[in-house]
Write a protein that binds this DNA or RNA. Sequence first.
DNA 1: ACTGAGCGG
Length: 84
Amino acid sequence: MNIFVAKLNFKTTSEALQQCFEEYGEVSSAKVIFDRETQRSKGFGFVEMPDDEAAEQAIRELNESEFDGRTIVVKKARPKTSNY
DNA sequence: ACTGAGCGG
């Protein structure tokens, strides 16, 4: 289950994001998107969880919840770039 | 250095 996390704190890192979701289930990978030029956070990231049940539960619990001082938005992620 | 909707290389 790919999870999309938005409105993150700009200081939030992938490690903190992963540890946040690990509280609700198994996390295979998690990363915050950083700008390729300035190396600064874009304010959103992605989390991948092998357990779909834990993933949906994590979405319910973490969506619109306070994380690192900011209210984050957690949704199901869309498939990657559709190159047509 | 800073910003605040939105989906990554």
